[in-house]
């Protein structure tokens, strides 16, 4: 049989086995840190507000007369994780085509931002949302109801794209 007797407890020195000096060292560190400036925050009461360059969950731009997306399917094609499913339909509006169904599987999305980069209409952009929670696989599939965000709330990102894309 292959029994190893060289356990961690056996390798400890006398002082280490005593524990007391180690506890003192630990407490010293704790006290020192207590008086340093705080790096953590009281999330979720205190939220962190990212900059425009941040890549949070992808959302669809909603203008006054409806979504910008024309359901071209390029984001779906480029998505390396195959997270996006688009079904186009015809509308009477001038743009002819709109997404009847637009779904992103947030369990698949890897926040790479390629959909945003490929979109010819600047209709899908990365938002600042980072706290995304769901309790089942079905809930993780975001439809148009969750994806459409009014353009006013996306100004910072759109500005960022205008400058750097």
């Amino acid at each position: 049989m292959n029994v190893t007797t060289n356990t961690r407890a056996q390798r400890m020195t006398f002082w280490e086995k005593l524990y007391l000096p180690e506890i003192a060292k630990g407490l010293a560190l704790t006290f020192k840190t207590m008086f340093k400036p705080k790096l953590t925050r009281q999330y979720p009461e205190e939220r962190w507000e990212p900059l425009g360059s941040y890549r949070g969950r992808p959302v669809l731009v909603l203008e006054e007369d409806g979504e910008r997306c024309v359901a071209c399917g390029l984001c779906s094609r480029v998505c390396p994780a195959l997270a996006i499913e688009v079904q186009a339909g015809e509308t009477e509006r001038e743009k002819e085509r709109y997404p009847v169904k637009f779904e992103i599987n947030m369990l698949r999305c890897i926040y790479c931002g390629l959909c945003e980069e490929v979109c010819p209409e600047e209709a899908i952009v990365m938002s600042k949302d980072y706290d995304i929670v769901f309790h089942s696989q079905e809930e993780a599939i975001f439809g148009k109801d969750k994806l459409l965000v009014p353009i006013a709330r996306l100004q910072e990102r759109l500005e960022f794209l205008r400058q750097y894309k």
């Binding site: 399917g73 094609r77 186009a88 015809e90 002819e96």
Partner: peptide
């Protein structure tokens, strides 16, 4: 057919 699918799908 209009808009039922993209050809590459």
């Amino acid at each position: 057919f209009r808009f039922k699918s993209r050809v590459w799908e």
